[in-house]
C-alpha cells in the first residue's frame, strides 16, 4: 500500500508503543529478580544475583517444579496421542459429523478456564468419587492441550499429499506399515511442535490447575500465586517467575521454528476451523 511518510511514521510509532506495552512488564519483573532489596520499590536500590541460587535451592520450588514437569509431560503425551488420532480421522477420511470434531476439540480452550476447571473438578469429586490430585490435573491439562496438537497435525496433513500413502498401499503395505513408514515421518516436526506447545501451555496454566489440584500439592504457577501475598517471599518469587517465563518461552520459540511455513504457532492457539483459510480467500474478493 502507498502510504505517506507521515502515516508510515505514525504506524512505526504505534508498533513501538505496542511492543513496549507488551514487553515492559516482563522486563520489570526480570529486573526485580536481581533487586538487592527485599522490598519491591522502583527503581531498585541495587542489584544482586542472590535470589536465583536461593530459588533453585528451595525444596518447595523443587517439588512444585517436579509436579509441573510431571503434569506437563503426562498431559502432553495424552494430547499427542488423542490429537494425532483425531487429526488423522479428520484430514484423511470423510464421515458424518466431521466438522463437529474441530469444534469439539476447540471447545475446552474457547470456554473460560474457570468453566473447564469447575466442570472437571465437579465430575471427579461428585460423580466419580476420585479425590483431586496430580491425576485430575493431568486430565484437565490434557483436555485443553489436545487442540494444539490437533491443529498442528491437521495443518501438516493438509500440506502432505495423500499420493505417497496411496503409493505405499498399492505397493502392498498394511495400514499400519503405511502409517509407520510414510505418514508418521512426514508428521515428525508437526508432532514435535504440537508437543512443545502443549507442554508450554500446561506448564503455564493456573486456572484449571487451581480447581483440579489436591490440597497441599503445587505446580509452579500455583507456588507463585500462593506466595504473592507474602511480601517477604517476593524476592524469590521474582526469580522463580523469570525461570518460569524462560521454561515456557523456549518451547514456544522452538515450535515456531519447526512450523514457520504453516503458521503453526499462530494458528494453533486460535484453532483453525475446518477449511477456514480456503473459504476466506474466496470471500476476500467481493
Amino acid at each position: 500500500m502507498r502510504l505517506s511518510r507521515r502515516s508510515t511514521l505514525l504506524l512505526r510509532l504505534a508498533i513501538g508503543v505496542g511492543l513496549a506495552f507488551i514487553y515492559v512488564p516482563l522486563i520489570v519483573i526480570a529486573i526485580y529478580a536481581f533487586n538487592a532489596s527485599n522490598i519491591l520499590e522502583w527503581p531498585p536500590p541495587g542489584l544482586t544475583l542472590d535470589w536465583f541460587p536461593k530459588a533453585i535451592e528451595s525444596p518447595s520450588v523443587h517439588e512444585a517444579l517436579l509436579t509441573s514437569l510431571k503434569a506437563g509431560l503426562a498431559a502432553t503425551a495424552i494430547a499427542i496421542m488423542l490429537g494425532t488420532l483425531a487429526s488423522l480421522a479428520v484430514a484423511r477420511y470423510r464421515f458424518f459429523g466431521r466438522e463437529t470434531i474441530s469444534f469439539l476439540v476447540i471447545l475446552p480452550i474457547a470456554l473460560p478456564g474457570i468453566v473447564t476447571g469447575v466442570a472437571i473438578s465437579n465430575t471427579f469429586t461428585q460423580v466419580l468419587g476420585v479425590p483431586l490430585g496430580l491425576l485430575t490435573v493431568i486430565v484437565g491439562h490434557a483436555t485443553f492441550c489436545i487442540v494444539v496438537v490437533y491443529n498442528n497435525v491437521v495443518a501438516r496433513l493438509r500440506r502432505v499429499s495423500t499420493s505417497f500413502e496411496e503409493a505405499s498401499a498399492d505397493l502392498g503395505a498394511h495400514t499400519w506399515q503405511t502409517f509407520r513408514f510414510v505418514t508418521l515421518p512426514s508428521l515428525r516436526t508437526a508432532l514435535a511442535a504440537g508437543g512443545l506447545l502443549a507442554f508450554a501451555l500446561s506448564f503455564d496454566e493456573i486456572i484449571v490447575t487451581t480447581f483440579t489440584i489436591g490440597a497441599g500439592e503445587e505446580t509452579l504457577p500455583i507456588w507463585i500465586f500462593s506466595r504473592l501475598f507474602r511480601p517477604n517471599e517476593l524476592p524469590i518469587v521474582n526469580a522463580v517467575a523469570v525461570l518460569v517465563v524462560l521454561i515456557s518461552i523456549v518451547p514456544v520459540y522452538l515450535a515456531h521454528r519447526l512450523t514457520r511455513e504453516e503458521g503453526g504457532v499462530a494458528a494453533a492457539r486460535g484453532g483453525r476451523i475446518e477449511g477456514g483459510g480456503v473459504e476466506t480467500e474466496a470471500t476476500a474478493v467481493p
Binding site: 520489570v28 517465563v245 514456544v252
Partner: peptide
C-alpha cells in the same frame, strides 16, 4: 503463549 501469571504479577 507464556507466563500469564507472571504478567499479571508484573
Amino acid at each position: 503463549w507464556s507466563s500469564y501469571l507472571v504478567k499479571v504479577y508484573a
